[in-house]
Amino acid sequence: MRRARRIAMASAAALLGAFAVAAWAQPPQSSPRAGVSELDPQIRGSSSDTPMGEEGRRLFEEGCSSCHGFDGAGVPGQGPSLRGAGEAAADFSLRTGRMPLDQVGEQPLRGEPRYGDDQIRALDAYVGSLGPGPAIPRVRPDRGSLSEGMRLFTETCAGCHGIGGKGGVAIGAYAPPLGEATPTEVGEAIRVGPYVMPRFSEAQLDQADLDSISRYVRLTRDPNDAGGFGIGHIGPVPEGLVAWFAAIAALLLIARLIGERSDSDRGRA
């Protein structure tokens, strides 16, 4: 009876430990509708007079104007004005599924895009036509410098997103992990500054910098793990879990095998 209870407790502890390590080693959370949009299409600009422009206006009025207002002027308390937001803002929000937003006031999170590629292009064009704003950048990671990228990322991005791009706390907001971001999305976010993220113009971070930063972001998806299993790449927390639930657990077990147990040696002369 006692033995069974102990085995049960030991198994529960081991399971809890394994769960803890697994939970920490998981890629961090996204919204329930999480999906990967690996599309990196070429964007052709257009004005709102063309057939695509008409389509864009129509889609906008249907799906976006309730919060962003007709003509994208914004609705107080609901959604910001998109005049001057630029096609990059629309493209980023739509391709990552952040927009349309389910709940006003909540932070927009990555999810399944609600529009198809053609529709997104149309909407991008429409929003871009509302006023001068960042164009969709052409980001080529292979043209960037990895070491420049790491340096820029450390100085500019790591404070929120973490040096390994695994996400972080921003008090009042969540800086998401970057594992699913395409190079274009990285460039767009830098130019646009979505939600509470700061934004950076060409004067501060030029095209070469975008290439370098996105090249580093690409590295963080598959970093150099010369030391073995990476356990989540977030540092001492999973390391501590392994030290306790793998090493100490194993050594306690070995000690138990080596030594005596009270109920068996009690009564030994």
């Binding site: 790491m150 450390t154 100085e155 790591a158 404070g159 929120c160 997103h161 973490g162 040096i163 390994g164 695994k166 996400g167 972080g168 706390v169 921003a170 800086a175 970093p223 150099n224 793990d225 010369a226 030391g227 073995g228 299993f229 990476g230 356990i231 790449h233 977030i234 540092g235 001492p236 927390v237 390391e239 501590g240 392994v242 030290a243 306790w244 793998a246 090493a247």
Partner: peptide, 29 residues
């Protein structure tokens, strides 16, 4: 553990300067 499970991959963190910081920095357990 030393061979199979990575610990403190300092190359992934980069060098320290007093004017640099990263989110999610933690000390050893």
């Amino acid at each position: 553990l030393g061979g199979l499970v990575q610990i403190n991959p300092i190359w992934q963190w980069g060098p320290y300067e007093p004017y640099l910081g990263t989110n999610g920095a933690q000390p050893d357990w």
